[in-house]
């Protein structure tokens, strides 16, 4: 269920790192908990700290903040989510990505969980 090769936070974000750029989204576990996402407030391009508020996902039951898994600069946001917020539910690991961050310290990924650790984390939560 939890894809290999991505890294995970205890707030249920994932990050996929390629050439120093991290693509960020929320996990399947998170989207299930949230329910049908009806509105996405995307971040603006610019610097962001690790664990800082990045985006807001709103479902019919709750507004939920998405935090930056790692520090860097937001260089691209998934504008498709403005018209299709349901992508966060339907394809949370692919088309439902939220933004891309040019990482200031790619090695900080060692603070995050790998797939096996995250799987164990949600099982015990």
């Amino acid at each position: 269920m939890v894809p290999q090769g991505l890294y995970y936070t205890d707030q249920h974000e994932w990050i996929k790192i390629e050439d120093g750029v991290g693509t960020v989204g929320i996990t399947d576990h998170a989207q299930q908990q949230l329910g049908e996402v009806t509105f996405v407030e995307l971040p603006e391009n610019g610097p962001v700290d690790a664990n800082a508020e990045l985006a807001v996902l709103e479902s019919s039951k709750a507004a939920s903040d998405v935090y930056a898994p790692m520090a860097g600069e937001v260089i691209e946001v998934n504008e498709a989510l403005e018209s299709q917020p349901e992508l966060v539910n339907q394809q949370c690991y692919t088309d439902g990505w939220i933004c891309k961050i040019k990482l200031s310290d790619p090695d900080a990924v060692s603070n995050l969980m790998d797939a096996a650790a995250y799987e164990a984390f949600i099982t015990n939560e």
Partner: peptide
């Protein structure tokens, strides 16, 4: 409205 892009009211 509950159209796409309209933030849910709380």
């Amino acid at each position: 409205s509950a159209a796409r892009g309209v933030r849910p009211i709380r």
